[in-house]
Each structure stands twice: as structure tokens, then as C-alpha cells.
Amino acid sequence: MRTSAFTRVCTRLVLLVALTLAAAPAPQPSRPAAAGADTAGVPAVGRAWPVGVRPRVLRGWEPPATPYGRGHRGVDLAAAPGARVRAVAAGRVSFAGRVAGRGVVSLELDATGGPPLRTTYEPVHPSVTEGTKVRPGEVIATLAPTPTPSHCPTPCLHWGLLRSDTYLNPLALLPPHLLQKAPPRLLPVLGSPLRPTAGSRASPRA
């Protein structure tokens, strides 16, 4: 009798635990804070490249597999020291100063949700201060000489994008017309006269 009662109690306890676990919500997989593999939700609010018109991308965005894994948390754009660095979109300067010996400017971008998207630019000599509101294309710094050692083979601007602590691809901010290459232009060969096209009237000789 005692054994039978003990068995019934154990059975009830097992059922109670099973029902409790079944009713509990399933744990959600954690997302690495620094991976940023998903660029969905990044609005194309960019109105200008940070440097130049269509600078050469020396190294693209390579998200790490883990928060502290190896990767490239941004893009490197070719530019000469002293080049003007511009805000890609409207926003507010959230930081302008030095980090680990490098000049850095960080902008919180307007109309990008919450927490707002934040772009970073380094190495630079900031020309703005924290709290300053900037317009798209406004100069915020000049490019500083690339420190040695550097992963850039030539002078470059490192441009990053984050939402909170999650790194994203900054190129996703730019609309297609800014990412496309300029159409090729046919120029006349030096010393060769231009031939009139069909239907056009040749100009009289002097």
C-alpha cells in the first residue's frame, strides 16, 4: 500500500512538471549584438557619400559571426588626407572627439526609428561639436592621415553604421542612384575632328 501511494505521488509530480514546462514560453534564440547580418529596416535616407562622389570601396562590410569575432564592422572608402567628410543624412552629432588615439564623429540620423541609426566616421579631424544639428552633405570633419599600422592599403575613411550595439551595412543607407556608377562618356580623340552625325549640318570652314 505504501509503495502504491508513493508511486501515485511521484506520477503526479512528474505530470505537474511536464505540464508546467509545456505551458512555459519557448526560449528565443539570442542574437549576437555585433553580428548585424540583417540590414532589413535600414531606410535609404542617405543623400550623399561621406567622401567624394562615388569613392572606391577598398573593403566592404563583413559582419562577424559573434560579438567579438573577426570581421569588418563598416566599409573603407578611398580618400586623401584632408578630404572633406560629409554627413550622409540629416541628424545630430552624438559624439565628436578622440577614441583610442583616433578622431571620431558619430551622428544620430533623423527619422530612422528607435533607437535611431548612428553613423560613425574615422579617422577624422572633427569640425562639429556634440549636439550640433547637421544637414545632408554638410561638412562635419576632414580626413586625418591613416594611422600606422592600418588595415587600409591606402588612405581611407572608415564608415560605420549601428542601431544600438548592432552593426549594420552603411551602404544600405544609400539609395540606388548614389550606388550606381556614372554612365560612360565618349570623348573625341585628341587631334581628330568630330564627324557630323546624320541629319546634322556641317559647319563651314574658316
Results as ranks from 00 to 15, higher is better:
L13E: 02
L109Q: 07
A34N: 04
A172T: 10
V88C: 14
L107F: 00
P81G: 09
P116V: 07
P126V: 02
P126A: 04
E122Y: 01
P149A: 09
A182V: 00
Y121R: 04
T7P: 06
P126E: 01
V42C: 07
A44F: 11
L161G: 10
E122D: 04
R2D: 13
G71C: 13
T39C: 15
E122T: 01
L16W: 13
A144T: 11
R47I: 10
P184W: 02
P27M: 09
Q180Y: 05
P25F: 00
S164H: 15
G74V: 02
A37D: 14
H158Y: 11
L107G: 04
H151A: 14
G82T: 08
P43H: 06
E122S: 01
C156N: 10
A35R: 14
W61K: 09
A206E: 14
P145R: 11
V124P: 01
L157I: 03
E130N: 08
R205M: 12
T146C: 12
R98K: 11
P170W: 06
P184Y: 00
G199C: 03
E130A: 08
P153W: 05
T166I: 03
A206L: 13
L109S: 09
R201Q: 13
P27V: 04
L109A: 03
F6C: 14
A78F: 02
R195T: 09
R73T: 08
P115A: 08
R92T: 13
R92Q: 03
G36M: 05
S164G: 15
R59C: 10
L13C: 05
C152R: 15
R118N: 13
L13P: 04
V9F: 10
A80Y: 06
L190D: 11
A144D: 09
S203N: 12
G131Q: 15
